[in-house]
Design a protein around this nucleic acid. Sequence first.
DNA 1: CCTTGACTTCAAGTCAACTTGAAGTTGTAG
DNA 2: CTACAACTTCAAGTTGACTTGAAGTCAAGG
Lengths: 131, 131
Amino acid sequence: MSELTIGQVARETGLRTSALRYYEEIGLLPAARRVNGRRRYEPVVLRMLEVMQFAQRAGFTLNEIRTLFHGFGTETPMNERWQALAEAKLRELDELIERAHCMRRAIEVGLGCGCVRLEDCVIGVPCDSED
Amino acid sequence: MSELTIGQVARETGLRTSALRYYEEIGLLPAARRVNGRRRYEPVVLRMLEVMQFAQRAGFTLNEIRTLFHGFGTETPMNERWQALAEAKLRELDELIERAHCMRRAIEVGLGCGCVRLEDCVIGVPCDSED
DNA sequence: CCTTGACTTCAAGTCAACTTGAAGTTGTAG
DNA sequence: CTACAACTTCAAGTTGACTTGAAGTCAAGG
């Protein structure tokens, strides 16, 4: 039982079958081999989907993930488009992390202070400039 | 000139007028006073919008932001719903920050290694368990 | 043979957060 | 007075990431 049905992949990954079909439709997953019209997946897609879900939770769009996967390891071990995207995303992630920290601090201040208006709390936290 | 037109608010905040009308429609902004049918805003909305944009960039949905603003400072200085939402969001933010850090590390590894397949890179980075 | 469950395709629906377009109103500048 | 920009409402369109529904196919069990 080396090949998996769409249902098995769905169960293993926690995705819905509709999502898997959708991924194939938009070219995120390579078109699966068909047996009597039904999809058969090689186990490696489980890992791909794992990474994809991970990337998605980290804020990548499906479009970016597709580029990430297509650009990675084709021809040269590390091509330029992948590198550019990765570096851009790195900067985005840094911004995201900073904003998240900032909002976190703001909420904590809000939880701990007696402000009547949220604006007063948040504005009082120094963040937009630097840490 | 203490009250602002929708155009002025838009210019000051960087939002489109359509967005401001939309915010009013969904109850995120209180319905502005009308003069001959046109909206007039008190300057305080600039701060509100500032905070709202900030919260949005930090990952809050408009729905959450509305709750955050409505629940804050009404009746008791710090009511329970606000507190619950804030604490839940705090946990979400922590998760987000961790995932972002993790993806960041994964990308860096990807940039620095010679892997042919992205999966190999990302999977090699210890993250899903703990840091 | 018939049912059942897992699958297929294709079209349309959903949600958030807006934007766009049409058609009309208001206030000011020339 | 006329033009024009800035506003109004209301309906419909957009994007991303899917989901839902209809109608049909296929293999296995009773």
